[in-house]
Amino acid sequence: MYRIRFHGRGGQGTKTASRMLGTAFFLAGYQVQDAPRYGAERRGAPIFAYVRAAKEAIHERGVIREPNLVVVADDSLVPVPAAGVLQGATARSVMLISSSESAATWRDRLNFPGTVLTLPAEASEQAELCFVGAACTGAAARLLGVIPRAILEAAVREELSALGEDIIRRNLEQALAAFDCMEPHAGSVNEGVAFSVADAKAPDWIDLPVDESDAAAAAIHASATSVEVRTGLWRVLRPVIDYDRCNRCWWVCSEFCPDSAIKVDADGRPEIDYDHCKGCMICVAQCPPHAIAAVPEQEFSEKTP
């Protein structure tokens, strides 16, 4: 059985990417299971989706313990623990990262025992956000080595049929280009094995203690703990204040920021809290003297690894 996990952000077409691959397997004669994993996550937040494919019936469900292929549509997710990109990956796993950086760089950075491949810049960089998913699907199809190019094309068409010929065409371009560029690695993903009884370790079952009622209720006896959630990770654009142009107005940026992510000091000087700024760019749009610029987040990750 092939077990594939896609990682992306809400709004990047991760679910669609997983479904295009699922459909491709299906059209290629496989038994298939695909499913997105929903939480409370919103646009920009890390999400993931599974695809399983096998020639025999599939009885597994839910979480993939050991993925044969991990597809990362957005490389800024890799260092995010909550995204769980490395979850369950082993020396037998292949990791495909859509990134302008080299596979070697990622291999060193991750200290990952399996194969690391990147979907290089020329295939993904110009792609608008919503086409990254298609590129990932195309690349994944080639790495699996069991999906012919024509079937990939048919699957992309089927999944996007409601969106019109223009959207289909642009997604196909991305998917097929990525398929072609993965030619040197065709078939590098192997099917996973079943989890044998012999290798199994007994679960560490415990008898749940009877806890005090205030601890055993889903109640929070604390103030503003949400600041521990780093929603700054959702951001793909970063608002940057040019303090020479900032005229210390009535804190328009802070007032309009939905996320309490812009603090203003006693002198009226705003400061953006990048741990929490989700990158909505309302401040950029509303700043009266246009003192805030939207800068792609990538520029910062490259400068400050």
Binding site: G39, D214, A216, A217, A218
Partner: peptide, 30 residues
């Protein structure tokens, strides 16, 4: 006890949990 709403004692009650682990815990504790 501590299950009460009072000024100066922040308490968020009946909140969502995401994930089956805390859900299983809270339900089984009940």
């Amino acid at each position: 006890e501590t299950t009460r709403f009072r000024a100066g004692e922040p308490l968020s009650q009946g909140v969502v949990v995401l994930g089956s682990t805390p859900y299983s815990y809270f339900r089984y504790e009940t």
